[in-house]
Simulated scan of single mutants.
Amino acid sequence: MSEEENPAAPEPGPMEVGADALRGLAHPLRARILDELSVHGPATATILGNRLGESSGSTSYHLRQLARYGFVEVEPGPGQRDRWWRLRPGGWRVRGTELLRGPATREAAEIVLDRYYGGRRERLRQWHALSGERPDDPEVRRWIQAAQDSVAHVRMSPEEAEEFARDLQAFVRERSLPFQGRTARSHPDTESVELQTDLFPNLLGPEEAPVVPDTPADGDDGAPADQ
Score class of each variant (00 low, 15 high):
T215N: 06
R173Q: 11
A225G: 10
A108H: 04
H128W: 13
R86T: 11
A161M: 09
H62A: 00
R32E: 14
V140K: 01
I111C: 05
R120G: 10
R95V: 05
E110L: 05
Y69V: 12
R166K: 13
G79L: 08
A104K: 10
L48T: 07
T197E: 00
G91W: 02
E16G: 02
Q169C: 10
D221S: 07
A184E: 05
A152H: 08
D82E: 15
N202D: 13
M156G: 05
R68D: 15
M15R: 14
A8Q: 14
D114V: 01
P210M: 09
E16A: 10
R141W: 08
A152M: 08
T46E: 12
W143A: 09
L52A: 12
G181T: 01
D218Y: 04
S157A: 11
D226S: 05
P158R: 11
N6I: 12
L34E: 02
E16M: 08
F71T: 00
L168S: 09
R166L: 13
D82M: 13
N202I: 11
R142N: 09
G49C: 07
R51D: 07
M1N: 13
A19H: 12
N50V: 02
L100S: 06
Y69D: 11
E4M: 13
Q227W: 01
G119K: 05
N50P: 01
F171K: 02
L37P: 01
L199F: 02
V151Y: 09
V39D: 05
E162T: 14
H153W: 11
L168F: 12
P224Q: 04
G119N: 09
D226Q: 06
G41A: 05
G102A: 15
Y61M: 13
Y61D: 07
I111T: 14
D114A: 09
M156Y: 07
